[in-house]
């Protein structure tokens, strides 16, 4: 049993490191962007090409470069083409989701490692006491 607990503790620590690494990697790929619906040709002809914003600017992790419009908005923020996202069935991942899930996973794996080490230590102590 103590051997199994040691395995569990190390597996939890390994998971902790993997989660942390994945979180760091995704955070490094995140960019501030505004989802926008580009106007159709009729609207553009009359009211200009300013797109309709969908929600507020967020930090998104989007690997497909074609999802971004070539022009930034008036605040200098990148623009994510909602029509492209809908066409390709892409739901853009937000950095805050990565951080939220990452934080839960890190706490979970850390707690599991501490518990496994703790229980193993108690068991070994009990066994040593019995042997003495």
């Amino acid at each position: 049993m103590p051997k199994l607990l040691l395995w569990v503790a190390f597996a939890a620590l390994a998971l902790f490191v993997i989660v942390l690494g994945a979180e760091r990697y995704l955070a490094s790929r995140a960019v501030w962007a505004q989802r926008v619906m580009t106007p159709n040709a009729d609207v553009e002809a009359l009211f200009g090409g300013e797109p309709t914003p969908i929600g507020s600017p967020q930090q998104y992790v989007v690997f497909d470069g074609k999802a971004f419009l070539s022009e930034r908005n008036e605040s200098g923020v990148l623009q994510l083409d909602e029509r492209y996202l809908q066409r390709t069935g892409t739901y853009p991942l937000q950095l805050k989701t990565v951080e939220f899930v990452g934080s839960l996973a890190r706490w979970g794996t850390a707690l599991l490692a501490v518990l496994a080490f703790g229980v193993r230590w108690l068991m070994l102590r009990k066994e040593a006491g019995a042997a003495a």
């Binding site: 609207v43 309709t52 969908i54 929600g55 507020s56 967020q58 937000q94 805050k96 989701t97 939220f100």
Partner: peptide, 17 residues
């Protein structure tokens, strides 16, 4: 042209629209 109305929820997990 189509009309657009959006509803944005800014929560801890994500902003969904």
């Amino acid at each position: 042209v189509s009309q657009t109305v959006t509803v944005e929820s800014d929560a801890d997990f994500e902003n969904f629209t």
